[in-house]
Every structure is written in C-alpha cells, then in structure tokens.
Design a protein around this nucleic acid. Structure first.
Length: 952
RNA sequence: GGGCCCGUAGCUCAGUAUGGACAGAGCACCGCCCCUCUAAGGCGGGGGUCAUGGGUUCAAAUCCCACCGGGCCCGCCA
C-alpha cells in the first residue's frame, strides 16, 4: 500500500538528510532513544518511544535546529548468551519463540547457538525496521556495545576507570538466590517454583545453653521482640548439629551449615544432635538474662533459617498456638513438657492501638486458628507482624527502647545486639525456590562484587538537583525520579557471564548492562570522526577521552600519548562540546526507576553541570489488544509485523494517537486498519479537492480557513514542545481535515487558498507521518524534501476572530434549525432569524462587564435598569435578564470573545442564507433586526451569538 | 507489603490543577448521497448511572473519604 515509502527512504538516504554535522551557526538539539537489547525483534513498545522522539526530532529540524538523532544497539548482558545456550540444549520453548514469535527463518536458527551471530542477525534485522519506520537517524553514528565493538569498549573502560577514580565504584558483597548445582544465580525465569522470592535478611540471635559455652542460634525477622521471649522451640524429631563458627560452638539444624558456608562464614561440623536431646534445657536470653526452656514444637521447619525459633507468644501466633498445644497435652508432641508450658505466660512488649494486651491471642481467636499446624496461622501472623511494625509502640519493659515505634526499635535492637556480640545477619529465602534443574536454591553471598555507590549522599543530592533542573515530560514523573534517587543503594555493576566490556582493573568481571548504558550518548558525538580518522582502539586512551569530554590534561602530552594528532583531539572535543548535553531522552515508564535515573546520576558523576541532561521524557507501556504484551502468552507483535500489515505512517500514527503522558497506549489492529485507510486516502483527498477548486477572489471563508490553520499550528507546536504527541497529532491531522471539510461545505473552493493550506498542512503532518507527507508534497509540485522544509510559521495576523465568530454563528444557527425541525410537527418551509440590535448588544456588553467585575446577578439587574430612562426600564430589565441567562448558558469567556469580534450578524447570516437553506432544506431564510421583526418571536429576546429563530 | 499512576460513549482518549455552559474528539457503528463495481469521499444519526458508595457545596467527572478494578516499579532481567 505504501509503495512510495521505499522511494522516500532512498531519497532521504541519498540526500543524507538526517546526517548531522556540527554547525556553530545553528542551534543544536540532541535527542536519544535508549539502545534496544538485541535478543529479539523490536516491538511496538520500542517503536512507540522511538517515534515520539523522532516526531520531536523532525519537528525541531523543521524549526531550523541542527538535530542529532543517533542510534545504537545493546549487546551487553546475559540473555543472548543464555538463549543461545538454551537453543544448543534443544529447549523447545526457546525454539518456538524464535520461530513463531520472532519469525527467524529455520536456516538461520541453527547459527543462533553463537550468541554473537544472534546479536548480529537481530541488529541487521532491526536496523531495517528502524529505517522502514522512517526514523530520522544519522546512521553514520551507529554502533553496538560490548567488546565486539572495540572503540566503544574503550569508552566504557574509560567510564569505569573514571568512576573508580572518583570513588563511585567499590568492592562489596551481595546476597543472591543461588542454585548449588548450577553454581549460578537463579533468576525468576530460571525457576520452577518461587517466582519473585528474594533473599530476606534475618537476624541470628545466640542463646547460651546454661552451663556450657555453646549457643543455640535462632533466626528471626523480629529481633525487637527479644524482650518478650518465654522459651525456645526446636523440632523434636529434627536433626541438629553442633558446629564451630568463629571459635564458638553453635547448635543449629543440619541444613544450616551449608547455608552459612555460602555466606562467607567458616563452618566446621562437630557432631550431630537430635532435637529431642535439646528439650528441657535452659538458655540465657540476651539483654534480659532471662532463663528460658527449650521446648518442642511442630511448626518448626529445620530447613528454614536455623531451624531454631525463639518464642514470643504475646506477639507471634505460632508461638502462642504451640504453647497452647503443649499445655493441653497434644499427643503429637513428646510428653513431659506440658507442665512447663502451663507455667508460661505470654509477655507483651508491644502496644498496638485497638488491640488487647496479648495481640496474638486476639488474632488467633478471631480467625479461629485451632493449632500450630492450622494453615490459617500464616495469614494471622503476617497481618499482626505488619500492624505491629507500622503502628506498634514498645512497652516500658523494653529497656531503652521503651516508647519507641516498633519500626525504629527493630533497627536499634539489631544494631545493639550485634554490637554486643549476640547477633549477626543471615540471609535466607522466605519461601522455597526450585531451580529449573530441580535443585532447591539457597542464598549465596557473592564476594568481591563491584558496586556503584548510588547510595552516596552527596551523589544523591547532586542528582536530585539535576532532576530539578531538567525538564521532565510529563511533569508527573518528576516525583518518581526523585523517589528513585532516594531509594537507590549500592548497585552491583559487574557480572561474570554474558557479553560486555571487561572492568579494566579486574578483567574477570564484565560491566553489566544497566551500567554501560548510562553515558554512552557522549560516544555518539565523536564516533563519526573516530571512524573518519580511522582512530585505532588503543589510541582511544583514558587521557584522550578525558581530554575530549572534560577538557582536562595537556593537549600536547595527550596527543603524544594517544598518537592522535592535536588537531584531531581538538576537533573531537569541539564536536562533543557542540552536541552535549543531551536535550531529550525518552523511554517507557518502567525505566524510570532504573535506567533513566542511572542515566542522570552517572552524568552527574562524570560530567560538568552544563552537560547534565536537559530533558527526560517518559511514556506508558504499549498494550496489545488490551493486554500486556508477552511472548510466553503469545500476545506479541513485532514492529516488522506492524509495518508489513499497516505501513510505517499508519503504525506511527496509531501509536502516537493512542496515548500520551503516562497512559498506556493500546495497539488495536482495528484502529490501525482504520488509520491506514484514512492516511492512504490523504493524497487522493488533496488531489481531488484541488481539482474541484478554482481561482476566485478570497472571501471570509478563506480567511476563516487560514485562521483555523493558525490555531492548529499553535496547538501542534505547543503540544510537541511538551512531547504531548497525541494532542499534537490530533491537531495536525484530524482537526485540519475537518476544517477543510467545513470549508468545502460552506463555499466554492478557492484553488490558491487550498494550495497554500495544503502546503502548510502537510508540513504540519510531516513529523508524524513523514512518508505520506513527502508524497503529497511531491504531488503538489513541491521541490525538495518536506522533512527538511520549514515548520509552518505562526502568523498571528492571520487569526481572524471575526471570521471565526461568524462561522461559529452560522454553524450554531444551522444546528439550531435542525434541532427544531427534529421536534416540530407541522411542516415548515421558511425561517425568520432575528438578530440582536444595538440596544441588545449594549445590554449584553454591560452585563458581561459587571459580571466580570464580580457583581452578583441581582446587582447587575439593579444597576443596569437604574441607568435607563423610566419608560425603558421594563423592557431593559427583560433584556438584562436574557443577557444573564445567556452568560450562564454560554459562558462569559466565549461571549466576550464573540463580542470582541463585533460581527455584523445580519450581514453574515444574509450572505450565508443560501447555505443555511441548503443545509436545512428550508425554502426561504429571512434575516431581520429585532425592531423589524414584529410579532411571532413570542417574547424571546435575540442577543449577540444568540439569534431568535422562528420557523413557519 | 510499599511508592507512583489510571478507571469518562463499542474502541482509543480530551475534560479533573483554578468545581459551574447540553460531558467532548477521533475512529467504529447505523442511515442517506456519490459511484459501473470495490476502496475512498460527502452528509446526517444513535450511543455515556463520567468504576462504585459516601461526604463537602447553591452546584462535583472535577475537591475529600472509603471501596472495587487495572498498570508500572520495588536491584542482579533488560
């Protein structure tokens, strides 16, 4: 259908239309789209964000800016490697995704076992898609990431060396969900069970066994309840072990040593202990020194944390239930401990508003939980923990924490217990996670990981400042950026697997994907010249890049060290200085809390303030037929499919018209098909309309059409400045189309008017639907590329409020007559339209004036009537009351506008009377001033913009 | 669980900050016109308890509270 699309693609390329070179005489605009990851075809989501940027870029280009819109491809990361691996292993799901969703030809697929081949394939495939979409890219600057692009590799190495020099990269440890068999972190998609489960930080608390140097070590999320401890639980038939840790002897479940060992602790297993052997022994609780017995409980799981639980029956439903079960002589439990249990009373340590003294008892009884193995206990526990954490206050028996909110006391207690040597942190999974290989996962604390110190307070506050200075589009997103900066903590920035750039100082690590994608836009600014001068990777030294981006160092020594000539270095520096900073980067809202914020923060860390990002755009997530896109659910469409089915223009228009701000656009194929038909009829509409027109004197309708056009130009321009692409598209496409339709209905089409109108209209359309705009332009005899023509100038003098008010009046009269004809029973053939006279006009004007000055309606009547001669007062009062009603109904603002236009209503309607007759089917239309109208208007009062219509 | 956002015609969305005009637009749908046919084009029309329930107000889609439903994010995926 768009047989002309490839023609224009070629013309743009031949004309090097979008290749951007620095030009000191012109102001620049530098826009970027986050490079897409090359493990599959581009989707409607990529295209939506990219088209928003492209539309902005094309708009700015037409406004005369020197626009740079570059493109690159992200190869960094594990998915390509992982997918290749899965394919190698013959994974049928992976095969099906490649063949059915991604439409990879069978003969290509066999080569996909090589991840680099796969990335290369998709890069080529997607490059074609981006071109076909009509994105106005400077392709000379294209590159991809990872060590397979040596020049870029040097750039990332420079970036990380700089960050490290600045102290923003440090070594640390980090807990991950770990498969002991695969010896690798287990991601969500690698799990048979336990999606979304993440390591949780527990506190291990050591309880000395009375009369020994050994400790029972219990795990808890609620260290602050240590003051309410009454006993300790073990599983009576559980397997426990004595282990040596850090010179101490601990007793924990037999599963625990393996977990501790993965958390950087040296563990030596000494001997086995049966749970039953521990029963009845006495432990000493820290802080209170309370002596508490070890008792049996069935709910204890030796696989969870240490398999030892300290009991706080006042606040923990399980503990309370276990105590009750034991006291009541539950047969499932070992005998001999019932009496001890009977003697234990819960010790409350937290006051919770709206709850009784022992909250656990209350929730357990209310929920009707019958014993410790009742599944309802879980929900009761969660609920109570939550309430106590958020609104609980420590009671006066809680030492120095008394009176503190639980949320604060928790951290303080943990800190103090640790300081006193009674506690340490330990990670475990709150729920089981099973790896794809059917192995049960544990937590591993990875050592020697490299982190970006996003938690750094100075870095944070400068970043917040950068966010404050930047334009955030839409404005609603700003808060989320600031939130994200506040939330961020140290972030692991390197991995051992996948593609990427090696950390220069520790080459077994690769810079991970969210970390090499933050400041690479700077590379776009120099890559053309690097290629032009055939700079070798080894010449791109750190000092050279520091010189280019920071202006630091001595030119001559940098030139000598890098082997690049000083004039080349200068030239690179100048091009960077010309394009930087980034004027707009735009992406989906899912990237706000990571990529887009990292983008800002790393610029803050590495670049001077004048090079911080100027604007960040955010958009919603593209839905497909009302549902989230998902390859695994089969609800997926690639950008290539869209182009094939609907063409680039219609695809762009459908997406741009479907949403703006943070709303999620919804791709409906029905809408796209309608859009395709509408757009494809544009050239013939223009041609047909022109061929039906003829030269004539310009009249009011011509002025009206141009006046409307000005309004549209203003609206589109304003909306595009704020990236409100949906509003912009409406005002560029549908609104002018409807304007022409009204014009054609109203008058004999004037060829020169329409020619001029179309010339401007298609320029307005060009940023949105560039192919059809070029095509129509050519058919109209336009020379050159419309993509490089000027944005329609806003000519305020063409705004003709008189013509606009006149057409509003005519339209209103036609609608009114049609409305009346719809309800009137007797046949009518003629209309008498009575327009307001001078007196009515004055009355309305005064009414508007007084209302605008804040007078109440009653006061307006009083004041105006008083100003009249005695004899006129009755009729004037009627007039003012009508005027007040008119103001109420039509709105003061609109009336003021119409009054200001000072339309001669009689003249306008008289000249439109043929039109009115044609539209309404009436034979005769007469226009009259009020004083001439005489009988028949039944007391109705004509006012400006509100004539009285009498049908006979 | 926490943060942010959204729920208005069949569909996609305006309108909500500063409460007041019959709640609008585009598309779809229906009817008519044009036409050798199809697509396109022209004209007209129907269609909404503004998610729900309270409250504030002379007046609420708009402000407040509650509730229901949906989306994005909450670090080792990108």
């Amino acid at each position: 259908m768009e047989e002309y699309a490839s023609k224009w693609m070629k013309r743009w390329e031949e004309a090097r239309a979008f290749e951007a070179e620095p030009d000191p005489k012109r102001r620049k605009v530098f826009v970027t789209f986050p490079f897409p990851y090359m493990n599959g075809p581009l989707t409607a989501g990529h295209i939506f964000s990219a088209c928003r940027i492209d539309t902005f870029a094309r708009f700015k280009r037409m406004q005369g800016f020197n626009v740079l819109y570059p493109w690159a491809w992200h190869w960094t990361g594990q998915p390509v490697v992982a997918a290749a691996q899965r394919l190698k292993e013959g994974d049928p799901v992976q095969r099906r995704i490649f063949l059915e969703m991604d439409r990879v030809p069978e003969k290509e697929l066999s080569k996909f076992v090589d991840p680099v081949y796969m990335a290369t394939y998709y890069t080529a495939e997607n490059r074609q898609v981006v071109k076909s979409m009509g994105l106005s890219i400077d392709w000379r600057r294209e590159f991809h990431t990872s060590s397979y692009e040596p020049l870029f590799d040097r750039f990332v190495r420079w970036q990380y060396n700089r960050l490290r020099e600045l102290g923003y990269v440090v070594k640390g440890t980090h807990p991950v969900v770990w498969c002991p068999k695969d010896k690798s972190p287990t991601q969500d998609h690698d799990r048979l069970e336990g999606e979304g489960v993440a390591p949780e930080e527990y506190t291990l608390i050591k309880f000395r066994l009375d009369g020994t140097d050994e400790y029972l070590v219990a795990g808890t999320l609620r260290a602050e309840t240590i003051f309410g401890i009454t006993n300790i639980w073990v599983k009576p038939d559980g397997k426990y072990v004595r282990i040596r840790v850090d010179g101490q002897v601990w007793v924990v479940s037999s599963e625990t040593p393996g977990k501790l060992a993965e958390q950087l602790m040296k563990v030596e297993v000494l001997s086995e202990v049966k749970g039953s052997e521990l029963l009845g022994r006495i432990c000493i609780a820290p802080f209170t020194g309370r002596r508490v017995p070890v008792l049996p409980a069935l709910f204890v799981d030796t696989g969870s944390v240490t398999g030892i639980v300290y009991s706080v029956p006042a606040h923990a439903p399980y503990d309370l239930l276990a105590l009750r079960d034991l006291a009541s002589g539950d047969k499932r439990l070992p005998s001999g401990f019932g009496q001890i249990a009977v003697g234990i009373s819960p010790i409350p340590v937290i006051k919770l508003a709206g709850f009784e003294e022992i909250p656990a008892a209350q929730v357990v009884d209310k929920a009707g939980v019958k014993d410790q193995l009742d599944t309802k206990a879980e929900a009761a526990t969660k609920d109570l923990y939550n309430r106590e954490f958020h609104s609980g206050i420590m009671l006066e028996n809680s030492g120095k924490y008394s009176g503190m909110p639980v949320s604060e006391a928790k951290a303080a207690v943990i800190q103090d217990l640790k300081a006193a040597g009674y506690a340490l942190s330990f990670y475990d999974l709150p729920e089981p996670v099973i790896c794809r290989c059917n192995t049960s996962c544990i937590v591993k604390v990875l050592e020697g990981q490299w982190f970006l110190t996003y938690g750094d307070e100075v870095w944070k506050s400068r970043s917040v400042e950068a966010i404050r200075r930047a334009r955030i589009l839409p404005e609603e997103s700003r808060q989320q950026f600031i939130q994200t900066v506040h939330w961020l903590k140290a972030y692991p920035c390197a991995r051992k697997t996948g593609l990427g750039t090696r950390l220069p100082w520790d080459e077994e690590w690769l810079v991970e994907t969210l970390s090499d994608s933050t400041v690479y836009m700077a590379f776009y600014t120099i890559v053309t010249q690097l290629r032009r001068y055939q700079i070798k990777p080894e010449q791109l030294t750190d000092s050279a890049l520091t010189y280019i981006f920071m202006g630091k160092g001595s030119l001559s020594s940098v030139a000598e060290e890098s082997g690049m000539g000083p004039e080349i270095l200068e030239s690179l520096r100048n091009e960077f200085l010309y394009w930087y900073p980034v004027d707009l980067r735009n992406s989906g809202k899912d990237l706000v809390s990571n990529h887009l914020t990292f983008f800002i923060m790393q610029h803050v860390a590495l670049f001077e303030e004048s090079h911080w990002p100027r604007a960040v755009g955010v958009n919603g997530m593209v839905q497909l037929e009302g549902a989230r896109m998902s390859k695994s659910h089969g609800n997926f469409v690639s950008a290539k499919d869209l182009i094939n089915e609907y063409g680039a223009d219609a695809s762009r228009a459908t997406l741009l018209a479907s949403a703006e701000a943070l709303d999620d656009p919804d791709w409906r194929s029905k809408n796209a098909a309608d859009m395709r038909d509408k757009i494809s009829s544009l050239p013939s509409f223009v041609q047909k309309t022109l061929s039906n027109s003829k030269e004539r004197e310009g009249d009011m309708l011509d002025r009206w059409l141009f006046s409307q056009l000005q309004r549209r130009i203003i609206a589109v321009t304003e909306a595009l400045e704020e990236l409100r692409t949906r509003t912009a598209f409406y005002n560029a496409f549908f609104a002018p189309w409807n304007d022409v339709r009204w014009y054609l209905r109203r008058t004999t089409p004037n060829r020169s008017t329409l020619t001029r109108f179309f010339e401007e209209w298609i320029r307005l359309l060009s940023p949105f639907v560039p192919f059809v705009a070029e095509e129509v332009n050519e058919r109209l005899g336009g020379k050159g590329l419309i993509s490089l023509s000027n944005w329609p100038e806003i000519r305020k003098e063409s705004i003709d409020i008189q013509a606009e008010a006149a057409e509003e009046l005519v339209d209103g009269v036609v609608r009114d007559i049609k409305g009346i004809l719809g309800v009137v029973k007797k046949p009518v053939t003629s209309a008498l339209i009575v327009v307001a006279d001078r007196r009515a006009r004055e009355a309305l004007k005064e009414t508007v004036r007084l209302l605008s000055s804040g007078k109440k309606e009653g006061e307006v009547i009083g004041e105006l009537v008083a100003s009249q001669a005695d004899t006129d007062r009755a009729s004037y009062s009627k007039l003012v009351q009508a005027a007040l009603r008119h103001c109420r109904e039509t709105g003061i603002e609109r009336i003021s506008r119409i009054m200001e236009a000072q339309v001669d209503e009689a003249e306008v309607l008289t000249s439109a009377s043929d039109f009115i007759a044609k539209e309404t089917g009436l034979k005769s239309i007469k226009i009259s001033y009020e004083e001439e109208a005489g009988e028949g208007k039944k007391g109705r009062t004509p006012l400006p913009a509100k004539p009285v219509i009498i049908l006979t």
